[in-house]
Design a protein around this nucleic acid. Sequence first.
DNA 1: CGCTTTCCCATGAGATACCATGCCTCGTCC
DNA 2: GGACGAGGCATGGTATCTCATGGGAAAGCG
Lengths: 146, 146
Amino acid sequence: MRPFIGTYENKVDQKGRVSVPAKFRAVLQAEGYASIVVRPDPERGCIEGYGMDRLERLSDMTPDIVNLGDPNAAPAYQILAESEELTFDPNGRVLIPAWMLEAAGISDSAVFVGLGRVFQIWNPAAHATFRATQLRPAAQARGTGA
Amino acid sequence: MRPFIGTYENKVDQKGRVSVPAKFRAVLQAEGYASIVVRPDPERGCIEGYGMDRLERLSDMTPDIVNLGDPNAAPAYQILAESEELTFDPNGRVLIPAWMLEAAGISDSAVFVGLGRVFQIWNPAAHATFRATQLRPAAQARGTGA
DNA sequence: CGCTTTCCCATGAGATACCATGCCTCGTCC
DNA sequence: GGACGAGGCATGGTATCTCATGGGAAAGCG
């Protein structure tokens, strides 16, 4: 599978519609999917996106009889319960649910960040902060400025 | 098989009718079924739902004459015995038996939770409690606040 | 004959598809 | 090398359709 790469900032209109970057769409359509799957990422405060194949794999790994007493089952439960499949409209846009936009603090603009097998959707300001606090120190430790 | 994903809250009217989320119906109809199969889940206090294909798989695995002494047969026996098939009305609703609603504490509203191959139907308040007590601690253990 | 259950219709809200516009990028021609 | 032109992509608005939900009528059962 081709990786998701690059960073793009697109507008979010009042209905919650966003254009998925064409490069990302190309990756998914090469796999035969006309949708993205998204879920909130509470650890980082953004939205995580990927293809349906990733979710189907997770579903297949989860036993028929969900044993929620198993602590290992809780993360899978949460991912499946909180994921939503968003299909592209004819122009390549998706409608992100309002509650998910709120969870990520996204209002009128969103940043798509390719991370290989998955990608993220950020509030632009939050993403800038994340880069400054989480990524730049690591880069500086390696001796690179930015 | 496409997985059941996402969380939806729908109204239960005075007759016990509930709209099955359209996304869930689409999964079942892709399999050729116009119904859901439900059974009470006494361990968690909710209703468990799935497609008839799952029951057929269980039935195939179960011997003609159920040997109740076999501990492996007991879960399949119980699931088969307690399951009810609920067919969609023309609008995509099902009529949940009153006793099952009572067992799950559901009165005027129900939460559908997709879990891949199966889904759950909860009393909204009970589901909120379940998420707070069973899922959030797991997330906090990983270092996340919410 | 009354009651319960099932089917059908109507309505409003929300989501989806469609159409149109402008910008930016890339390719081509002069 | 610069200007022009074409195509793709992002974006905004509008129309259509699906879905969820409530009520009512008809049929089956006790």
